[in-house]
Design a protein around this nucleic acid. Structure first.
Length: 257
DNA sequence: ATGCCCCCGTCCCGGGGA
């Protein structure tokens, strides 16, 4: 079972790149972020025509998440509990072949002084509450998405230049590590503990050509999923295409019994 | 120090991204 996560920066602008990739990669489940599409405009038929299943949770212009799968999608929940005032479409869960998956688009949090950063940290706390509940279920869980956190210096081409940013802020990193302390595994680091691997390169200043990247897209997996983990990687291919997303997919492979 | 680039929308600028 191959499960991937990808911030596509608009599902409509990236439709061909995404459909081509899921077919070529032999991916089974793709967790998508930044669809930037209202539900009524989501390009459902492109995935139905492939024989895939699709669920989505969007809003106008910004944010938006989706899950597409070769296998039936069950028990879908949209939104993250803990704040009735929060109307940003950043979270959705579903069960596919007995695996509970979540697609996560964590707030960026810049600037670090003010409401946006407070929202990020509050959102992280809500995610931790949900993550603890999911661990209690003792089933394979994959939390995949754009966490907007650079967990350590080796995950950044220029740690000094990024100091003071919301993505490297100590509170952001603590909140991310907390998910690991309570029991989730940073799947990429399980297989590649010290390799420099990025998932995002800015559109600006030739960041891709200079390999000025950061690792901010993550797959956090429960112990029951970790037991089934055989491989993890990042596919840089889509970032090098014409009109790419600024993120590229991260994937993991779980053995199925 | 700032912007570079890209996407969206009652749309040709401004907000948001990271």
């Amino acid at each position: 079972m191959r499960i991937a996560s990808w911030n596509v920066n608009s599902i409509k602008a990236r439709l061909e790149i995404v459909t081509d990739w899921v077919v070529a990669d032999n991916c089974d489940i793709l967790l998508i972020q930044e669809t930037k599409s209202q539900d009524m405009n989501f390009p459902v038929s492109a995935f139905i025509n492939l024989g895939w299943h699709v669920v989505f949770h969007g809003q106008k212009s910004y944010n938006g998440v989706a899950i597409i799968s070769r296998f039936p999608i069950e028990d879908v929940t949209a939104g993250l509990a803990g704040d009735d005032e929060d109307d940003q479409a950043r979270y959705m869960e579903a069960t596919i072949c007995g695996i509970r998956v979540a697609t996560i688009y964590l707030p960026n949090g810049n600037p670090t002084q003010g409401k946006k950063f407070d929202y990020k940290i509050a959102w992280f706390k809500r995610l931790e509450v949900r993550a603890r509940e999911l661990l209690k279920a003792e089933i394979p869980v994959v939390l995949g998405g754009d966490f907007n956190v650079i967990p350590s210096d080796i995950d950044c081409y220029d740690p000094d230049g990024w100091s003071g940013d919301a993505l490297t802020h100590p509170e952001s990193i603590s909140a991310f590590r907390k998910l690991v302390y309570i029991g989730f595994c940073d799947a990429l680091r399980e297989i590649h503990p010290s390799e420099v691997i990025y998932t995002y390169w800015d559109y600006q200043a030739g960041a891709w050509q200079r390999d000025n990247g950061v690792r901010i897209d993550h797959l956090l997996i429960s112990p029951e999923a970790q037991d089934k983990l055989v491989n993890v990687g990042v596919d840089k291919g889509p970032r090098g295409l014409e009109k790419p997303s600024d993120h590229t997919p991260i994937w993991c492979e779980l053995v199925v019994n």
